[in-house]
């Protein structure tokens, strides 16, 4: 069982903090997946623990002075309680597995839900566990052999990768005398998409030109809607000869409106005073296009993404926008 020299370090003490981080890191892996063992588990009394310690000291001195043996016995039973509760606090974290952590991407300004998966490989229930991450806390419990997924809210401000801060998994079981804890770094950064502009201008219609059309696999038959039986009056060029031959009857193509033309969303043509504003407008456009089931191409400086209209394309575009330097 390891006991930290100091539980709290001033946030402004840069050098000691770095030294401390290195020291912690030397004690074992800190990124999930990891199994907590004694090298990573720290224990210190809580405030209540210190208070009880003080009380114990008073009881000890009084009983010793009066040579009051039952008083001493009471004191020592409290001491035994304290020592056992330290062991149990440690036990509550020992062999706990932090399996993975991650968060779905969010738009800047939204709170990301950092999900941390933990598992209890032992046969003993673990109650009163807590994840503390960036001043948010979340309590949870693990049944024997059970799993838990703990969500910690992370505030986001800027687009790009957000490295979640060092998190603690901690417990004050069984009676709140000691706090046992372990540090870990969430293994994956959180992708923060740009915040979409509040009132974006309308989509730049008609902006698509040959440059935007890169997909050469557009099928010819795409404009067909279906085949139906030939009716009198159907023009000859709409007869589907091949199919008619297969089905041994005359079939005609049922044509529908061709798809609307593709959109080209270009960073350079996006309105906005600075880069960030432009990116926010582009983000809003990309989202609108996707909502309207329209295909679009995103051009960010030298890179062109698309065209496409599905969710994967949307995600690619958002990611590119988030990470655009």
């Amino acid at each position: 069982m390891a006991t930290a020299d100091s539980a709290r370090l001033g946030a402004d003490q840069r050098a000691p903090r770095r030294w401390f981080d290195r020291w912690i890191a030397r004690r074992g892996p800190m990124r999930p997946p990891l199994t907590l063992r004694y090298r990573q588990i720290f224990i210190l009394p809580t405030r209540f623990g210190w208070l009880l310690g003080l009380l114990m000291f008073a009881m000890l001195m009084g009983s010793l002075n009066f040579n009051n043996n039952l008083g001493l016995l009471t004191t020592f039973i409290v001491a035994g309680l304290a020592s056992n509760s330290m062991l149990i606090a440690y036990r509550n974290l020992d062999r706990l597995q932090i399996q993975r952590s991650g968060a779905a991407p969010v738009f800047a300004g939204q709170t990301a839900q950092l999900l941390i998966s933990l598992a209890n490989p032992g046969g003993r229930a673990r109650a009163g566990l807590e994840i503390a991450c960036a001043e948010r806390r979340q309590t949870f419990a693990l049944p024997p052999g059970g799993f838990a997924e703990v969500a910690v809210a992370l505030t986001t401000h800027h687009r790009g990768w957000l490295q979640p801060p060092r998190c603690r998994v901690q417990t004050r079981q069984p009676i709140g005398l000691f706090q046992a804890w372990s540090w870990f770094w969430p293994e994956r950064p959180v992708l923060v998409w740009p915040q979409p502009a509040d009132h974006p201008p309308a989509l730049p219609e008609g902006g698509a030109d040959q440059d935007g059309r890169q997909d050469q696999r557009q099928p010819d038959g795409d404009e067909f809607f279906s085949l139906r039986g030939w009716r009198e009056g159907d023009p000859l060029h709409r007869v589907a000869w091949k199919a008619s031959q297969r089905h041994n009857t005359l079939l005609a193509r049922d044509l529908r409106q061709p798809r609307s033309r593709q959109l080209l969303l270009d960073l350079e043509q996006a309105p906005g005073r600075d880069l960030e504003e432009k990116i926010r407008v582009l983000t809003a456009w990309v989202l609108t296009a996707h909502r309207q089931h329209r295909a679009w191409t995103l051009r960010l400086g030298p890179d062109t993404i698309g065209p496409g209209s599905d969710e994967a394309h949307l995600h690619n575009c958002l990611k590119a926008l988030a990470l655009f330097p």
Binding site: N69, L72, L73, F76, I77, V78, A79, G80, L81, S83, N84, S85, I88, P174, I175
Partner: peptide, 14 residues
């Protein structure tokens, strides 16, 4: 359990 397990420690100290 907690209390019972504290008896050995308490007796030793005593």
């Amino acid at each position: 359990t907690l209390l019972l397990m504290s008896v050995p420690v308490a007796l030793t100290l005593f």
